[in-house]
């Protein structure tokens, strides 16, 4: 009974994570300019990856597998903002003008 509940919970996490990955990818395709697309990449990297990894951890149980997944999660949470920030800064230095909208809408 307990195992079944855990299994169900992990599937919910995995499917929600996959949905967020897809939403992030759609955002990368839909958003109008480079700097707004970075936000969609952020969605993919934090929520999508986090939920999928948590779902896999629930499948792994208390073992070495979970420790490794936790390490992947940890590294991802440190490297992803750094990579996104490096992209934004490089584009800013490469004189790529951001589209800015004023007060309306």
């Amino acid at each position: 009974m307990m195992a079944l509940a855990l299994d169900l919970l992990s599937w919910i996490f995995l499917l929600a994570g996959a949905a967020f990955l897809l939403i992030g990818a759609i955002g990368v395709l839909r958003f109008p300019d480079f700097y707004t697309r970075l936000h969609a990449v952020s969605v993919c990297d934090t929520m999508g990856a986090g939920l999928v990894l948590i779902g896999l951890m629930l499948q792994g149980g208390l073992s070495l597998v979970t420790v490794k997944l936790l390490l992947i999660f940890y590294f991802m949470m440190f490297t992803c903002p750094t990579a996104v920030h490096a992209l934004a800064q490089a584009a800013l230095q490469g004189k790529l003008k951001p589209v800015v909208e004023d007060r309306e809408s």
Partner: peptide, 9 residues
């Protein structure tokens, strides 16, 4: 940067 919706440039 980690929070979607804001990116440090």
């Amino acid at each position: 940067t980690l929070i979607p919706g804001t990116v440090t440039m």
